[in-house]
Amino acid sequence: MARMRFLCDVERCIDCAGCAVACKEGHNVPVGINRRRVISINEGEPGEKSISVACMHCSDAPCIAVCPVDALYQRDDGIVNVNKDTCIGCGYCFFACPFGAPQFPKGNSFGARGVMDKCTFCAGGPDEDFSDREMKLYGQNRIAEGKVPLCAGMCSTKALLAGDGDKVANIYRERVFKRGSGANAWGWSRAYDKK
């Protein structure tokens, strides 16, 4: 069974926020909720890098482990989702998550006050596929359509990859190989003092 994964290639990420906004637009996420965010470090300095971060859909998800009402669940394709009907908005998953994925809406937007929202891997939620309720609470269910998540599909430089972990790893491996050969191979400039 395929296990869904994200990978953000920091050599390619240019902090264009295409992923973040594709998600917001595609799922009608309210202003103030950030399912996906691009983080840049060392801005303005050599070594500046950007990375796009959302829920990692962990295999052994800490959020699922700590949820007091078992609102979080994992599908057999690895996607971790929250059941907004169950969630009490306590924020314990927010404590536990190493990536800051859980988001909590302010006010009455998007279904409920205080109930946790996060990246769904574009797989909607527990409601019936393509139902109005699913769209309203969780957004599009692209996985049920057999389509890729919007963030990765719309990444401007193909930095962000999403899909079966094996396939994603293969794509990335190939890239790394291409980068590391010839004059870019590690040690080349040390050996030949040339650029």
């Binding site: 926020a17 295409g18 973040a20 637009e25 919007l150 719309m154 401007s156």
Partner: peptide, 10 residues
């Protein structure tokens, strides 16, 4: 190839 920046994505 499907890509957009934040402006095109919206």
């Amino acid at each position: 190839r499907g890509g957009h920046c934040c402006k095109g994505a919206s």
